[in-house]
Design a protein around this nucleic acid. Structure first.
Lengths: 198, 198
DNA sequence: CTTAACATAGACAAGTCGGTCTACCTTTGT
DNA sequence: ACAAAGGTAGACCGACTTGTCTATGTTAAG
């Protein structure tokens, strides 16, 4: 049976995201899930393994949400519009799928596992790379895919500004910045910033 | 004497920034500083108070570095150039003043103190606001100060991308984006993005 | 010289941590 | 019917946590 394993991951992710991985003990996860300690250590070798499981679960959740938000986009402009509108909803807590907004789970977790080569820090970096890939693939125009990196940078800035800086309007701000960049890129007379590099 | 207090803060900040506030115990700070436990609790009411002290110290450090980097700037373009060149050096570990790059201490600490109204989370938000203010004041042109928010957003994105996403070139990427935005803002024919709003 | 402030080392309290283990129960396939 | 796999409850371990306290030493001002 994998359902005990799943219950553990669900409880762990909820608590980890709410309070931070270092602030949540094994026993709290057991109490919340109603699973016995022995069962936990039957499915996971250690707390770190459980954290990786929770990261994996959140990764699926987030990429799933992202893909749904971006699906059917016909242009870079549409990708930007959908993504940052979605982020705005997330920041304001109206995306049940992602839970109450408490910043990016991967950023928060990486901040607490500082050994750079740790499996956990690597997973967080990999997640970010896969998010970038998802954005890239949702851009129909092949010659515009370099926009994915710009979008990512603004997205990271918006998440951090919204959470740590408590700027709830950060997604809209980022969206305006991207709108300006797009307007410029489309202008034939002003091609200072050529978007084919990188 | 305040030098014991200072030694404690120095040791605490170094360890907290390197490993994260939750991963460092009081005893480790005492061992590193060579100060007695009783002395610590003479100067600080609790570990949280010591964390606030370390945040305060880092705030002074960072604002000091920032002001120095930005000092003498004559224009928004110059502010952007100096700031992101400085960030690039920081990310690549060539700013001894700020220590080995391990992301933003305030972002990392906020990620571990998730009660939104906690003194620690509030301090982190306040720090970000004061950084924004420092940037705003370094912009000579009064009608251009709204650029500070844009610069902040890109700066936060660059820090997070560099640390969590392990993209060492994030500062340069942000700088290119800002260069494009500036080029557009200066173009008389293309004023889609009016920079007086907030 | 005395007194007060500040320092030291480190035992100790009281609790939490991750993780192991015993003992028992339930489900499932052969 | 029986065995194996997976479950439960929770005692227990050793290490570590923040914070208090005793007992002693040093420094400086009046």
């Amino acid at each position: 049976m994998n359902d005990k394993r799943q219950e553990l991951i669900d409880a762990a992710l909820a608590l980890f995201y709410e309070k931070g991985v270092k602030s949540v003990g094994i026993n709290e996860i057991l109490a919340r899930s109603g699973v016995a300690k022995k069962t936990l250590y039957h499915h996971f070798a250690s707390k770190d393994a459980l954290i990786l499981g929770a990261l994996g679960q959140r990764h699926e959740q987030f990429i799933g949400w992202l893909a749904r938000v971006l699906s059917g986009s016909q242009s870079v402009d549409e990708v930007i519009d959908r993504l940052f509108t979605g982020l705005d909803h997330w920041f304001n807590g109206t995306v049940e799928e992602l839970g109450d907004f408490r910043g990016c789970f991967f950023i928060n977790t990486a901040a607490q596992y500082t050994e750079l080569n740790s499996e956990i820090a690597s997973y967080c970096a990999k997640h970010k790379a896969l998010v970038a890939q998802t954005i890239r693939r949702s851009i129909a125009e092949e010659n515009e895919q370099a926009w994915a990196d710009t979008i990512m940078l603004l997205k990271e800035g918006a998440i951090t500004s919204a959470y740590v800086g408590q700027q709830v309007g950060a997604a809209k701000q980022a969206q305006q910045i991207l709108a300006a960049l797009r307007a410029q890129a489309k202008s034939p007379t002003l091609s200072v910033h050529n978007r084919t590099s990188r």
